[in-house]
Design a protein around this nucleic acid. Structure first.
Length: 734
RNA sequence: GCGUUCAUAGCUCAGAUGGAUAGAGCAACAGCCUUCUAAGCUGUGGGUCGCAGGUUCGAAUCCUGCUGGACGCACCA
């Protein structure tokens, strides 16, 4: 009767909407797909009768009878031990666990596994590439980029937790017409009223100003656009002309302190002179579209190397070489812009604790993309259309080359995917990019499908394209909704750092008033609730020393970051987010700070109880195995909880929730949806806070308190693991 | 016009192979700090799940149509 395997049964198990129906249930109509027939209600009753007569009512040692049903099933053998009763209600088979055993089992398991609790092997032996953040160098790092950054980082951690080998790639937007504009603006406006010292201090904002200025000026002066196009054209030729693509990421030398000398002197003039020369040349020849085609050795020489070696060799591929050869002014400026930008990006990533295994750029793929277009034309997969090159598709044709022969985002993405597959042999690649680019990615994925279908058309020696057929189906667009109505209070674009700082300031203010209240309890509740700064507090009059101030500064920053990051991860990716300062800066309710606060509260509580009862539990050692040795041995021999405890119902509810952690992680991974974890953590924290408020632990029996500390540690482990997966900073105290 | 996507409480959102009575948080109202951090807790009110059909034992969930919003639709990325 029960010849369904355990994994399949697991899929059938659901959580009832209300605990009064049971702790777990199996809706009997689910069993129809396993060959059961008839009225679901009758079926449910039959199964319950069966369980009673063949399992529950049998004596413990009647293994022979059990073997009649199944010869190898621990679940059945342990059934009596872990389940208290079973009941049929309507079409549902409801299972009631042995609550006391359940609680003790789960707590012991969490304490034993510690921050490995919830880890699983969903992705064992698989490699996943996560392409995220990918800011555009010519544009500032705004709150818009934060979503990709934060979702991507979280997914990387989740996949890692699920046993995948994860590769985090930042694919910089370092190529395209906007660089022509920037270079033009830089050369033209340099002597106008731009403050060049700002270029050094805050290159991103400087470049942004240049960009904005270019656009306002070019409205009245179309010549600027022409110059920008030509400058980009020249830049692209410089880039394509480089044989070794990795040179593109070579450092131009760390002479940034003298950058203005370079700009003011040789480089700046070089730049202009070359441009004049170049544009004269182009006018003379009358053909700005023509460019020299080259055979790129690299293109046809890809070999299957050990990808792991490749990964290690290239990890953190910052180069510190100085390019020896002469380069064009455009290329110099482009490298300079990129270098400064990356430096700035890294500074920001560092603040929010984000890191990458590789920094790539579109520029690296451009030369391959050029040749790719040609190959696809020859194979009759692509065709010419109004001088441009397109791949016909059911819907919108995919444009892969402009009529002047230069490549596009799409063609470079094809090349990049090929390069990455060659390098990593990934099982899965995630592009964490906004939903407005859905068409782009559906075209990209379709192209690989077409390449697979037309595999036969490619010449055998074309090793590179051979990968194309394998890529189809491995690419995923992890899209997310737009942030609507986002602006500063003044109405401009929001820079990420300003955003974090605003959150930080608010947190600092709150810390200040809290501290004031603690030191001076006579402050009325009304004053405090207004959270006002009406009674300004200096560090001296509150007796707050410098250390405390630094502490508070650090706490405020982490609270601010937590608020900002969590705000982006708490809802499903796909929904558009209405940006609202009041919501973002709220630290109450379903927020990052609420979670951080819950952890801090647990720490503080454990510390106080430990001090009072002398259990000698060291919070800072909780994750070292030695410190846990005693706890684990205790876990084996004693119960943490009894069904007769006055707080048992809530304890059971908490532990039951904790037990769902692993499923939650898997759910988040399989749907590429960090918000699943956010929701889970909010529920966990709410349960804990409810416990905290309603059951005071001070002045109770020592044994009981010790057991509850084990519960608190379990909650702490789960909350901290979850926050780590979201990359929300964890605070010891608040 | 075509395509993608979304519509659940006043606001922001959960509710994911269709399943039992649709849930939180803000905001509102009423309580709780001489005792473990009030960034908290307890309670109350608040819903035609955009509208209309369909599929079936059963629909917020799947299908069709409609309405409304967001985004995209070849030389930007």
């Amino acid at each position: 009767m029960l010849n369904i395997d355990a994994a399949e049964i697991e899929k059938l198990i659901k959580l009832p909407p209300d605990a009064s129906y049971g702790d777990y249930c199996i809706p009997s109509y689910y069993l129809k797909q396993n060959g059961f027939k008839g009225d679901p209600e009758v079926l449910a009753n039959k199964i319950v009768d069966f369980i009673y007569s063949y399992i529950i009512n049998l004596p413990d040692d009647n293994a022979a009878e059990l073997n009649k049903i199944t010869n190898n099933n621990d679940i059945l053998k342990n059934f009596k031990q872990y389940f208290a009763s079973v009941g049929a209600k309507g079409a549902y088979i409801n299972f009631y666990v042995n609550k006391q055993k359940f609680v003790n089992y789960i707590i012991a398991e969490i304490l034993a596994k510690k921050n490995n609790y919830g880890k699983n092997y969903l992705g064992k032996g698989k490699t996943v590439i996560i392409d995220f953040s990918s800011p555009n160098i010519a544009k500032p790092f705004g709150v818009g980029h934060l979503r990709s950054t934060v979702i991507g980082m979280s997914l990387a951690r989740i996949y890692d937790f699920c046993g995948y080998k994860t590769v985090k790639i930042n694919y910089l937007g370092d190529f395209g017409t906007q660089f022509g504009k920037l270079i033009t603006a830089f050369c033209r406006f340099k002597n106008a009223n731009l403050d060049l010292t700002e270029f050094k201090n805050d290159p991103i904002k400087f470049l942004y100003k240049l960009y904005v200025k270019f656009h306002s000026e070019s409205e009245n002066n179309p010549e600027l656009d022409d110059e920008a196009r030509l400058r980009f054209k020249k830049l692209e030729q410089s880039i394509i002309g480089i044989d070794d693509v990795s040179e593109l990421f070579d450092d131009i030398g760390d002479d940034l302190d003298n950058y203005d000398n370079n700009i003011n002197g040789d480089v700046y003039n070089f730049c202009n002179d070359n441009f004049r020369e170049y544009s004269a040349e182009v006018r003379k020849s009358g053909n700005a579209k023509e460019y020299k085609e080259k055979e790129y050795k690299e293109y046809n020489e890809y070999k299957d190397e050990d990808r792991n070696e490749d990964i290690d060799k290239n990890r953190d591929n910052d180069r510190d070489k100085t390019a020896g050869q002469e380069i064009s002014g455009e290329l110099y400026l482009w490298k300079l812009f990129r270098k400064l930008s990356i430096r700035e990006f890294k500074r920001i990533y560092n603040i929010i604790n984000v890191s990458f295994d590789f920094y790539e750029g579109e520029s690296q793929a451009s030369k391959i993309a050029v040749n790719l277009v040609d190959t696809l034309l020859r194979a009759n997969i692509a065709e010419r259309s109004m001088d441009a090159v397109v791949i016909p598709m059911e819907k919108t044709p995919a444009l892969i080359a402009k009529s002047d022969g230069t490549t596009l985002y799409l063609s470079r993405d094809i090349a990049t995917a090929l390069l990455r597959f060659k390098k990593f042999k990934f099982d899965k690649m995630l592009y964490v990019v906004g939903s407005e680019q859905s068409l782009h990615f559906s075209q990209l994925f379709n192209i690989f499908k077409i390449l697979k279908e037309n595999e036969i058309k490619f010449e055998k020696q074309d090793l590179f394209l051979r990968y194309a057929s394998e890529i189809s189906g491995r690419l995923h667009h992890i899209k997310f909704g737009r942030i609507i109505g986002m602006s500063t209070r003044k109405g401009n674009l929001v820079f990420l750092e300003d955003y974090i700082n605003e959150a930080k300031e608010k947190a600092r203010l709150k810390l200040k008033t809290d501290k004031q209240h603690m030191l001076n309890p006579n402050v009325s509740a009304a004053d405090k609730s207004e959270n006002s700064a009406s009674a300004p507090l200096t560090s001296s009059d509150a007796g707050v020393n410098a250390d405390a101030y630094n502490d508070n500064d650090d706490i405020a920053l982490k609270v601010g970051i937590g608020a900002v990051i969590f705000n982006d991860l708490k809802t499903r990716r796909n929904v558009d987010v209405n940006f609202n300062w009041d919501n973002v800066l709220s630290f109450e309710g379903q927020t990052g700070p609420y979670l951080q606060y819950s952890v801090a509260r647990i720490n503080s509580l454990i510390e106080k109880l430990d001090k009072e009862y002398s259990f000698k539990i060291k919070i800072e050692n909780l994750y070292s195995s030695e410190a846990f040795y005693n706890i684990i041995t205790d876990a084996e021999k004693k119960d943490f909880c009894s069904i007769n405890d006055y707080d048992f119902e809530l304890v059971f509810e908490i532990v039951k929730h904790l037990s769902l952690f692993e499923d939650t992680i898997k759910d988040a991974a399989s749907h590429d949806e960090p918000s699943v974890i956010s929701t889970y953590l909010l529920d966990a924290a709410a349960l804990f806070n409810s416990y905290y408020q309603n059951y005071k632990l001070m002045n109770l029996k020592s044994d009981f308190v010790y057991n509850r500390i084990m519960l608190l540690i379990s909650v702490k482990i789960i909350l901290e693991s979850g926050l780590n997966l979201l990359s929300v900073p964890i605070l010891k105290k608040m």
